[in-house]
Design a binder for these strands. Structure first.
Lengths: 191, 191
DNA sequence: AATCTGACTAAAATCGTTTTATGGTCAAAT
DNA sequence: ATTTGACCATAAAACGATTTTAGTCAGATT
């Protein structure tokens, strides 16, 4: 405890407020008071509220990425890998409250400042799918005509489902069908 | 013209306003003035604004259903039928402004009064998919393990895509991938 | 009898104004 | 190098007065 990492403490507190109340209903004063500091210190470590929110989101998605990498490492054949990837991705994002905030934002066409972090995650996502499907092709278990558009298709479907799943409280209603989605996609890709 | 069908005239005018300005920003006075009648006459033919909106939506979806029935009648094998159904459905709903209103509503959890009409359409939708896929099974071109859950899966995906397609102006961005969706689904069902 | 009118009401939305809250700054303190 | 707390400008909330609007109804019209 010789050097308390204030930046990390701020992010942790900010995370609690942002994930509970969202961007607009969280005030910088609240966050500062919660860690028994003056508001100014937030502005010593971050240039703006938006930057702080960005950092919280970034760390949340970083956690998701770490878990997804584990999924990829722990599955050996591409079929299981794809199946686990799709399901775990839904499960992890289901529990990512700050990410849900940005989904709402997307809907209302606000939160422009968050584009970069979301773009980064989209890129990661795409890379993983490329990797998994390419692996399947090499293994001979998958067979597709156009890798690029297949990846786009899967991404589109997964992204489209996020609003009903996470924002419209249809997770319990849809999740069983969602599991089938994974096996259905795989069936469509199988050789 | 001996008996001008006032009810139909009201619905036509209401349709113009609702589809352009939505439910809340359309006033009963506007509609009445547009057809050169007093507002009271609207309440002679309909019990409330909600009921009038319902009627407009009902007729819009009735039109969609009619077109979709044509698609089913005009395709002979189940594979083409399914392909055309999915694509035409997206295309028709893309142009159904009043329906878009209810999608927004769904998101904001308002417009409870519209549940019945939407439920009717969902039922129709499900019946058609059942019909098409059953036909494909009989023909021997499709082969699936669980009809019920397959239908649910396709419905879930199509419904999920409506928000990005119709409300987030991603129609042009997604529609090409959307076309592939149809052929992808078919591939997944083929025997 | 069926259809329509227009004045009416109660409730809600809108608008202009004042007050308060909030993001952000900074000189001084630690 | 980090933190404080007073301070500013602006945006959001609160307020109250005014207008709009969904819905009603007694009476007119056909």
């Amino acid at each position: 405890m010789s050097k308390p990492d204030v930046k990390a403490i701020i992010v942790r507190a900010a995370n609690q407020y942002f994930s509970k109340f969202g961007f607009y209903k969280t005030t910088m004063d609240e966050i500062a008071k919660h860690i028994h500091k003056a508001k100014g210190v937030l502005y010593y470590h971050f240039n703006s509220k938006e930057e702080l929110f960005n950092e919280v989101l970034k760390q949340e998605l970083e956690g998701v990425k770490t878990e997804l990498r584990k999924v990829i490492n722990d599955s050996d054949d591409a079929l299981n890998m794809l199946n686990n990837y799709i399901f775990t991705r839904f499960d992890l994002l289901h529990n990512s409250d700050t990410y849900h905030e940005t989904l709402k934002a997307d809907f209302f066409e606000k939160y422009h400042f968050v584009e970069k972090v979301r773009g980064d995650f989209a890129k990661f996502d795409k890379e993983q799918l490329y990797f998994i499907i390419s692996k399947g092709i090499k293994e001979g278990t998958l067979e597709i005509s156009d890798l690029e558009s297949t990846v786009d298709l899967i991404l589109m479907v997964m992204n489209s489902m996020e609003i009903p799943l996470f924002l419209q409280n249809k997770y319990s209603e849809y999740i069983d069908t969602g599991k089938e989605l994974a096996s259905f996609i795989i069936r469509g890709l199988k050789s």
